[in-house]
Amino acid sequence: MPTKLDNYTFEDFGLIEEFGHVHPSTPEFNEQTLSIPGRPGLLSLGTQIGAKQFSLPVKVFVRDRYERQRRKNKFVAFLFDAYRQPREFKLSFDYEQDKYYMAKISSQFTPEMLFQMDQFELPLVANDPTKYFFIDADLIRMGSHIPVRSHVKPGARHSFGITSNQTIKVINDGTLALRPRITISGTATSLTIKNTRNNHSFKITNIVSSKPVVVEGETYMVTEGGTDTFSKLVGKFIDLLPGDNSLEISGENMNLEVNFKYKSQFI
């Protein structure tokens, strides 16, 4: 299965992908340091994570130069939107079919125009260097069309009925911590969710059935019945760490359905 850009292959544009592309294993990163006079060495201030840069060798192999230009024009039209801006698309490789990057063209490329073909290096960048699993975790079930080599656990629960204090298990099959979208529907005087692995927790009060609460940890948003209400949440957004996460659910007068929505993420 060849490299895919969204649901297209290079062949769909009349192009040929050659061997020898560049796919970095790590993103760009810079160690942030501070030098203090009189103190040996450097003081580490953490690491700044950057993008991933890709380069794919491509050729257009057809003798008719007008047809070659037509195929290049079709491909360039895919890379840009109607406002002349580079558009993002899902980039996935044949040796890792279950994961994708959100990538776009990163700089100008100029084909070398030969007698019977044109050839060029396609420069792409994923400003978000994270690899995402191609399907949401709650949609992975026995019988799902998951690539054989995927290391995921089908059948894990992501929806829970809550009427009393209890501990639930939510699995993150990725290698990176993530913040899920948590949808809370039903009624409760109060609700507290705590991840015992890092002791992060939040509390929400006065949940009513007509106004489901949605906690979007990745975008720092909390809505109640579709209306922004950030102050509804007291505490910290919940992180799901790689592996099993035991979440303590407690509160008063709970008759709730709690759902977790996320894609596993990889470095």
Rank of each mutant, 00 (worst) to 15 (best):
T3G: 07
L5E: 00
D6C: 05
D6L: 04
Y8Q: 10
T9F: 09
D12M: 10
G14M: 09
G14A: 10
I16C: 12
I16K: 13
G20Y: 10
H21P: 11
V22K: 13
H23Q: 15
H23S: 14
T26C: 02
N30L: 07
I36V: 14
G38A: 06
P40Y: 08
P40V: 11
G41E: 04
L42T: 15
I49G: 03
G50F: 11
K52F: 01
F54R: 01
S55C: 09
L56P: 03
P57W: 09
V62E: 12
E67D: 12
R68M: 09
V76R: 05
V76E: 09
L79T: 08
D81P: 06
A82L: 15
A82Y: 09
R84E: 15
P86S: 06
R87T: 07
S92G: 07
E96H: 07
E96M: 11
K99A: 04
Y100L: 04
M102F: 13
I105F: 06
S106R: 10
S107V: 00
M113F: 13
M117E: 14
D118H: 08
D118G: 08
Q119L: 02
F120L: 04
P123Y: 03
V125E: 15
N127V: 11
K131S: 08
K131C: 00
A137F: 01
D138F: 04
S144W: 02
S144L: 06
I146W: 03
H151A: 12
P154T: 09
G155H: 02
R157W: 01
G161F: 13
I162H: 01
I162A: 03
I162T: 03
N165M: 09
Q166E: 11
Q166D: 09
T167G: 04
T167F: 00
T167H: 01
I168L: 04
I168C: 02
K169H: 06
I171N: 12
D173K: 05
D173L: 07
R179T: 13
T183H: 04
A188S: 12
T189W: 01
S190V: 01
I193W: 00
I193H: 00
N195R: 10
R197E: 08
R197M: 07
R197F: 06
N198T: 04
H200E: 02
F202A: 01
T205E: 11
S209G: 13
S210P: 00
V213G: 02
V214I: 12
V215K: 01
E216W: 05
E216N: 15
G217M: 03
E218F: 09
T219Y: 11
T219C: 07
M221V: 08
V222L: 02
V222R: 00
G225H: 06
G225K: 08
G226D: 03
T227S: 13
D228F: 14
T229K: 13
F230Q: 12
S231F: 13
L233P: 00
V234S: 06
F237Y: 15
F237W: 08
I238N: 00
P242N: 05
P242E: 08
D244P: 05
L247K: 00
E252Y: 03
E252D: 14
N253E: 14
M254S: 06
V258H: 03
I267T: 12
